[in-house]
Nucleic acid binder design. Structure first.
Length: 514
DNA sequence: CTGGAAAGCGCC
DNA sequence: AAAGGGCGCTTTCCAG
């Protein structure tokens, strides 16, 4: 096979150098880059990660190990040779995967997006993020006081003490002891649900569900965030070092664990207290960038629907425009309620929502919900045609793709089970949209990192950048962005609609952001 | 004691 | 009769 393998620690990490070219292959490059950085070694020029390539070829196998890939791509070739060392296996896997990437036209996605993203993520993980442990501690203490009071009120409303964190005990209190009506309420496998939806309905007729809703929100924030995050601060760096997973989700999104930094609260004021604890230290500045309405913009592009494209091209409020279309009214007579309704419909379309769910969500009749959906598709025929075609094509080919060719296989589309088939059809609708958004956001990471690197900055999206001159340089790097918090930056991809970038920065970006 | 399922809920 | 897509974390509860 003509492969040279470096010895010692490097071979143990699965780095392979081909003898005829200087290209280096790695399995889980991001992990190795972190390990190398920790030891102060540089790993130059790695241009192929077998884990990422294997995942692109078959996303049904998340975070494949070297053994998984050997099993999938080398063993079936029927060679009689022994598997060899891990680096040798990695080299063989690369050779087997490259033709697959080319056949599926995934090579540009691999080379231009996934490989650069892996290197950026390694730096982000290594850099970590600063969090104000004292602020979190104060928040926890305050939440604890409020929780004690809420507990007392819940026990009083129930008539006795019980474990407020146990849905089972709560269900017995609500429906067996207090005999609250269960008619029309959502059920779980074991009985009537006690989720927020149900408790909100019951809140109108009894004080316990109302208090419990308050209790749950605070208990969640305290246990998941203000209590847990400080424990994850690395004593060596004083920062939190999350792990990003690049070869995991079915749609191509990233995920984050230990802790999950992608679900830090932002919606409620109590939640924003948690988010505010992620503040740039003295002398540094945090920058965050995001796209506004990216999924609906992608829908407009993929569906090539003139109305949606026009709405985005002219910078309209998309939910208000949808409201005007669906309700058949002029754009100036759209009220906040109309807009709220249209927003639910817009999201529902992306997720493949049916009329039942829409009716429940909006507290309207099934007939009305059915009518809204009908009118939506009448007014935006491009969307209807696109969604129908998506499902038909997916059924024929057995998979769906994103704009950059990322695949997701959907064998369930031909299932005899109606429920499983319907689920697969919703996935067939959602995945090209959600997955394309993931592609574009990764591409934006690569471009932004390159821009800031050119400006001699060390960029870390959502992480701190150490540089006294950051603000000046960021302005330059992100031209035509100026001092305001939100601006249009650039078109990241060849879309039929403009993408709008939202930037937030400051010593505390959470305060600046919406 | 550990592991896993279920319920619930935080984010996009 | 009909689960809106994608995640990860905490708690309870039960099995081993």
């Amino acid at each position: 096979m003509n492969i040279a393998v470096e010895g010692g620690a490097i071979a143990a990490l699965g780095v392979v150098i081909s003898a005829e070219s200087p290209r280096k292959t790695c399995h889980d490059l991001k992990a190795h880059l972190r390990e190398f950085a920790r030891r102060g070694i540089s790993l130059g020029g790695a241009d192929f990660d077998t884990m990422l390539a294997g995942f692109l070829v078959n996303p049904g196998r998340p975070e494949p190990s070297i053994a998984d890939l050997y099993q999938d791509y080398i063993a079936p070739l029927g060679g009689s040779r022994a598997p060899g060392s891990e680096p040798q296996q990695v080299a063989a896997i690369r050779i087997a995967l490259i033709p697959k990437l080319e056949e599926f036209e995934l090579e540009p996605l691999m080379r231009e997006i996934e490989m650069p993203v892996a290197k950026i993520l390694a730096r982000m993980e290594q850099a970590g993020i600063a969090v104000d442990a004292a602020a979190l501690g104060a928040t926890s203490a305050e939440f604890a006081e409020k929780l004690t009071e809420l507990e007392r009120e819940c026990y009083a409303a129930a008539g006795h003490e019980f474990n407020l964190n146990s849905p089972l005990q709560l269900r017995r209190v609500l429906f067996d002891e207090l005999k609250l009506p269960t008619k029309g309420l959502k059920k779980t496998k074991s009985g009537v649900s006690t989720d927020a939806d149900v408790l909100e309905k019951l809140a109108a007729i009894h004080p316990l569900p109302a208090k419990l809703l308050e209790y749950r929100v605070l208990a969640k924030l305290k246990s998941t965030y203000s209590d847990s995050l400080p424990a994850l601060i690395d004593p060596n760096t004083g920062r939190i070092h999350t792990s990003f997973h690049q070869a995991l989700t079915a749609t191509g999104r990233l995920s984050s664990t230990d802790p999950n930094l992608q679900n830090i609260p932002s919606r409620t004021e109590d939640g924003r207290r948690i988010r505010r604890a992620f503040a740039a230290p003295e002398g540094s500045l945090m920058l965050s960038a995001d796209y506004s309405q990216i999924e609906l913009r992608i829908l407009a592009h993929l569906a090539n629907d003139p109305t949606l494209i026009d709405a985005f091209a002219s910078g309209e409020d998309i939910h208000a425009r949808t409201a005007a279309e669906v309700l058949g009214i002029s754009r100036d007579s759209v009220t906040a309620d109309h807009r709220r309704l249209a927003k639910v419909i817009n999201f529902g379309i992306i997720y493949g929502m049916g009329p039942q769910r829409l009716a429940r969500e909006l507290a309207i009749s099934l007939a009305e919900a059915t009518d809204y959906i009908k009118r939506y598709f009448e007014r935006l025929p491009g969307v209807r045609a696109y969604l129908e075609d998506s499902v038909v094509q997916a059924r024929e080919r057995g998979f769906v793709t994103t704009m950059y060719g990322r695949r997701r296989y959907l064998p369930e589309l031909n299932s005899p089970q109606g429920g499983a088939r319907a689920q697969a059809e919703r996935i067939a609708i959602n995945t090209p949209i959600q997955g394309t958004a993931a592609d574009l956001i990764k591409l934006a990471m690569v471009r932004l990192d390159a821009a800031l690197t050119r400006a001699r900055l060390d960029a870390r999206i959502l992480l701190q950048v150490h540089d006294e001159l950051l603000l000046e340089l960021a302005r330059e790097a992100l031209e035509p962005v100026s001092t305001a918090a939100r601006h249009e930056m650039e078109r990241v991809a060849d879309l039929r609609v403009p993408l709008r970038v939202e930037l937030k920065w400051g010593l505390n970006w959470a305060q600046l952001g919406g």
